[in-house]
C-alpha cells in the first residue's frame, strides 16, 4: 500500500441476481484491488444475501457470486464487514456465510463510514 493510499469503502447493499448491482460491486472491488488503496468492503441490508452458502445458479444462467467472493482475500481485500442487524433481521449468522467477515453493529458501521475519504455505493 502506498503512503498516499486513500481510504475507500465499497458499500454493497443489493441481493444477488435480481439486479446486476451486486455483481457490479464485486467487479469494482476486484478491479480496485489493483490500485493499492486502503480498500474496505461492507455488506449491508440485502447485500448480506450475497454471502450466503449453498448458492447454485446452474438453473438460472447467472454467474455464481458466492463462488467468486471467497477469492477476495487472495486479492488482499481483508477488511470485509457485515452489518450485524442486517444479518439478525434475516435470521442469519456468520456461520451461514461463505467468507470470514467482521460483524459490526449499527454504531460501528457509522464509525466505519466516518473513517473513509470516499464511499463507492452499490
Amino acid at each position: 500500500m502506498s503512503a498516499k493510499a486513500k481510504k475507500i469503502l465499497v458499500v454493497s447493499s443489493h441481493a444477488p441476481y435480481g439486479k446486476s448491482t451486486a455483481r457490479e460491486s464485486l467487479d469494482a472491488v476486484l478491479a480496485a484491488s489493483a490500485y493499492e488503496q486502503d480498500l474496505q468492503l461492507l455488506f449491508v441490508g440485502d447485500g448480506v444475501f450475497q454471502l450466503l452458502k449453498q448458492q447454485d445458479t446452474s438453473a438460472t444462467g447467472a454467474k455464481n457470486l458466492a463462488a467468486t467472493l471467497p477469492v477476495l482475500p487472495l486479492y488482499d481485500i481483508n477488511d470485509i464487514y457485515v452489518h450485524q442487524q442486517s444479518l439478525d433481521q434475516r435470521q442469519l449468522t456468520a456461520a451461514d456465510l461463505v467468507l470470514e467477515v467482521k460483524c459490526l453493529d449499527s454504531r460501528q458501521v457509522a464509525a466505519l463510514m466516518d473513517r473513509q475519504e470516499i464511499i463507492l455505493s452499490f
Binding site: S13, V44, G45, H83, Q85, S86, S106, R107, V109, A110, A111, M113, D114, Q116, I119
Partner: peptide
C-alpha cells in the same frame, strides 16, 4: 461525517429505514 442520499419511496422500500439504522451522529 457522511451525507446519505435515499432515492426510493418509503411506502414501497425499506431503504430509508436501512439508512436510518446505520446513520451516525452528525451525518445528514
Amino acid at each position: 461525517m457522511v451525507l446519505h442520499t435515499v432515492n426510493k419511496s418509503p411506502f414501497s422500500h425499506c431503504l430509508l429505514e436501512q439508512c436510518l439504522q446505520v446513520i451516525g451522529d452528525k451525518h445528514a
